[in-house]
Nucleic acid binder design. Sequence first.
DNA 1: AATATAGTGTGTATTTGTTACACTATCGAA
DNA 2: TTCGATAGTGTAACAAATACACACTATATT
Lengths: 232, 232
Amino acid sequence: MQSNLPHLQSTFTTDCVIFGFQEGELKVLLIERNEYPFKGWWALPGFFVEQNETIDDAVKRILHEHTGLRGIYMEQLYTFGDLKRHPQGRIITVAYYALLRLDDLKSHLEPQTDYAKQAVWHPLNDLPELAFDHRHIIDKSILKVRRKISYSPIAFELLPEKFTLTQLQQLYEAIWGRKLDKRNFRKKMLNYDILKELPEFQRGVSYRAARLYKLDKRKYAKVFQNELTFAR
Amino acid sequence: MQSNLPHLQSTFTTDCVIFGFQEGELKVLLIERNEYPFKGWWALPGFFVEQNETIDDAVKRILHEHTGLRGIYMEQLYTFGDLKRHPQGRIITVAYYALLRLDDLKSHLEPQTDYAKQAVWHPLNDLPELAFDHRHIIDKSILKVRRKISYSPIAFELLPEKFTLTQLQQLYEAIWGRKLDKRNFRKKMLNYDILKELPEFQRGVSYRAARLYKLDKRKYAKVFQNELTFAR
DNA sequence: AATATAGTGTGTATTTGTTACACTATCGAA
DNA sequence: TTCGATAGTGTAACAAATACACACTATATT
């Protein structure tokens, strides 16, 4: 980290905690910074917000630059404005989190910006030291997601279109950090009546293949509107 | 509203939705603006964040300037950054909400800043037309408060130190906008075991005086930490 | 003094949700 | 065919939330 950096005029950035779910654990997409300050450090994808774009648009742009994807579920998390959070002056950042359907194709992403050397998925439970206050931002975002999946079916944003109940349960277990009872979990989820049972099963597994389900979007929308207490 | 205002460079403000509870209804503190744009309109208390203060400090300062009070409960709500939300250019605002113990002394506040002609409590259910996107900000904050009192005992921030169970119930009813069953409400609240029954009763009422309670801060802290599901 | 009003204060039955818990079925690989 | 691994299923006990009716107290009005 350098010390004699230019002092920037008051301005603001956005940073995004991108969550993915793979191999039964939650992952966060981090970039290796290619610019000072914190060159070579791991950090959240983020950048300055342009004059003529909304914050939401800036986040969408940054998500696209780092994942090549559009239409990702995202939500504003919190705005951080400590005086010392950025060595080049008071830079406020509006943090977002995003939930991404991870499959094998998206495991290795090539950032489309020179600002990042590489983008790598890191297990949430084993993160490297991070630039700025990014560790703090991640901690806050996992708390928010943990609460939000209790009253809103956002968890499905992290799963492939067709999924097994075991995958769904593992996802809740990963987000909440505790084991759930299989029978009770299934009973409750099926009772919400927002899943559609498919006439298909897992393939290529060396054990009894599990049935696949997908979200019933009509009923999902209804549950989502009411924002009822959804799971606990 | 004027049209040829100077174009401001990118900068940001903070606006605060200050809730109070009086006569069984929720109120919001609005100021009458004394400056362009929107001179003479009702608006949320708010101002530019200075270079050398955190956002939290700016909100505390603005709260003090408009209420003369310090130590008010407040929390960040959301950051609004639409391109057209301010006629003088792209100004991002970090919105907060605050919960204030209202008593007769605080019913009439004298703002300590020329920027506001007066500060007046308005019933949430009967608001005037507001400047900027402030109506939108209020709508969003009431949704947040409505959800938050379900898992956190923030409601007590709006009550005097000693209160009756009926006052507490009226507050929940005002925030949720629906009637609750008296017996069930009392049973549930007392079961949380965070209230201390006082050997005192209401005075000066023309009906049977109700018992006064206050928060048991030790137990309150415990409940608050766990952020359990608190009421529904 | 009688009456109306408004708020306090208590108990019980019903429904709903939560938890605890163990075995059989199926598939692929060896 | 056997083994290892995971899928899939039901019931009972308990806790929590809800619905519901009536008696008591204090004051104001007539």
